[in-house]
């Protein structure tokens, strides 16, 4: 079986502003010496893993361990400082729902706008418009400007658009925590549907239970390094006992 995602020796460095400089003199001095008042911060260090096609792969770790950065690199939003990522097939990133929604526009217009942000054609969106509206259950509010929507309503529409396509790889970052209980269940069902359809899923969650329930394999990140990689049950057990 071939791999859907291959991550080879990824390093990611960020510039972090460190100390506060006391005076203008100090500022100019350092500027002149090119001693930049930034310090490199390694968000990810030598991360390696492969995900097989059709696998459901979870990433666990505490806040700031580099989970989201890793997802962004896999999705192509960020380029790593070194190392490489190879992915096969189309990627739907559910990293932040409704990226590119414009509050001044109505939900109807936003569906077309957000769909085009995700790279769908006009014909594709028109063809699936009803499914999107149906899934989000927002038919009555279609022509209302998005600024009058609640966070949960926005998330519903965003989720509906992002999952209407059957991507080869689905990247999910903590988004299952949106909407009410009933809608969360609906989202999980949709993801299960995609998974059974052969979509490879990469998922980040704080909820270890969720990872245990959904995933086959898992990766545990700590301070940007791979602490453990393997069977989801084992990794989650080790993570919980930590």
């Amino acid at each position: 079986m071939s791999n859907a995602v291959e991550v080879n020796g990824i390093n990611m460095m960020f510039n972090m502003s460190k100390e506060k400089l006391g005076s203008l003199k100090e500022y100019l001095l350092r500027f002149a010496k090119r001693q930049l008042y930034y310090e490199a911060f390694a968000a990810l260090t030598d991360v390696n893993f492969q995900i097989e096609k059709g696998d459901v792969f979870g990433i666990v770790g505490v806040n700031g361990s580099g989970k989201s950065t890793l997802l962004k690199i896999v999705s192509g939003i960020m380029k790593p400082t070194s190392g490489s990522v190879r992915t096969e097939g189309s990627i739907a990133p559910l990293i932040e729902l409704g990226a590119g929604f414009d509050n001044e526009l109505t939900a109807r217009e936003n569906i077309f706008l957000n769909g085009s942000v995700l790279g769908y054609s006009k014909r594709y969106i028109t063809g699936h418009f009803n499914d999107i509206v149906e899934f989000s259950e927002m038919r009555d509010f279609l022509d209302m400007p998005m600024k009058n929507y609640s966070t949960g309503m926005v998330a519903r529409v965003g989720f509906a658009i992002a999952t209407i396509i059957k991507p080869d790889i689905l990247v999910i970052d903590e988004i299952l925590a949106v909407g009410d209980f009933r809608f969360q269940e609906k989202c999980e069902r949709r993801i299960a549907e995609l998974m059974s359809g052969g979509t490879t899923v990469l998922i980040v969650s704080h909820s270890v239970e969720q990872i245990e329930r959904l995933c086959k394999h898992a990766l545990w990140l700590e301070h940007g390094m791979v602490k453990m990689l393997g069977n989801a049950g084992e990794v989650c057990a080790a993570y919980k006992n930590n």
């Binding site: 999705s75 192509g76 939003i77 990133p93 932040e96 990226a99 590119g100 942000v117």
Partner: peptide, 9 residues
């Protein structure tokens, strides 16, 4: 900035 941090375009 808001957009390019969230999705590849």
């Amino acid at each position: 900035s808001g957009l390019i941090k969230k999705v590849y375009v």
